[in-house]
């Protein structure tokens, strides 16, 4: 079994239902996110549109976070999920430096690394990840990539524009997007300008450690 995600960006309307469901399900502390929906505005007024891209851990087949973790706190489980053992983690932040997608954060309460686990605990009880259940438009498609009859496999077969984030990194993500452009997937394809954020002056909780 190889579990994977696919987000159909044609369907996503940026409601952030998945983000909230994830927060609640996994008790993700304030100022940190396992899953977040990035908004990028494209065009020049009045010809503008807003794009939405849910971003989470890609559960890479060749995961740099797993490779660099000195104590195997990050590890693969048999269904392909890259899971984390917070009791094992020493908080070296090697994984934070290694993940090309910025998917890992240091939990300010436990001072250990954390990230999306595809809701491994729910899957163990034959439930879907919380974000899949919460999405009102079914934009999150989840299933076994090794089963050609699964929803996700059928979706991949039926669509030509299936993409992953940063394929050049060689991580082989198990998380796909349909209907994405560079603006959605490539951080260099958009600007980040002071004052353009919907929420400016975001405060983050102190992490401990020695960040600048």
């Amino acid at each position: 079994m190889q579990l994977g995600f696919l987000v159909d960006l044609h369907l996503c309307m940026g409601c952030k239902g998945c983000e909230i469901a994830c927060k609640v399900e996994n008790e993700v502390p304030l100022s940190t996110w396992r899953l977040r929906v990035k908004y990028v505005d494209v065009g020049t007024f009045p010809e503008t549109k807003r794009t939405f891209t849910p971003l989470r851990c890609n559960h890479c087949e060749n995961a740099p976070c797993e490779r660099i973790c000195p104590v195997s706190a990050l590890h693969y489980i048999e269904n392909g999920i890259v899971n984390i053992d917070k009791e094992r983690c020493i908080g070296c932040a090697g994984c934070v430096m290694a993940c090309p997608y910025g998917a890992i954060y240091i939990d300010p309460e436990t001072q250990t690394a954390d990230k999306c686990t595809y809701c491994a605990h729910r899957i163990a009880s034959s439930m879907m990840p919380a974000c899949v259940v919460a999405c009102p438009v079914g934009a999150n498609i989840f299933g076994d990539l090794e089963d050609p009859k699964s929803n996700i496999s059928m979706y991949i077969q039926d669509h030509r524009d299936v993409q992953v984030r940063k394929p050049e990194k060689g991580t082989n993500p198990h998380h796909f997007y349909v209907g994405a452009s560079q603006v959605n997937l490539n951080p260099l394809a958009s600007r980040r300008e002071e004052g353009y954020n919907l929420f400016n002056k975001i405060t983050t909780l102190p992490l401990g450690g020695h960040h600048e």
């Binding site: 990028v40 505005d41 494209v42 954060y105 260099l188 394809a189 958009s190 600007r191 992490l207 960040h211």
Partner: peptide, 23 residues
């Protein structure tokens, strides 16, 4: 891809990336 910016005028309006400097 950077050269497409003039055409797309793409600006991130909501994202909360990691704090800058971890190490």
């Amino acid at each position: 891809i950077h050269e497409t910016l003039a055409a797309t005028n793409a600006v991130v309006t909501l994202d909360v990336p990691l704090p800058d400097v971890f190490w």
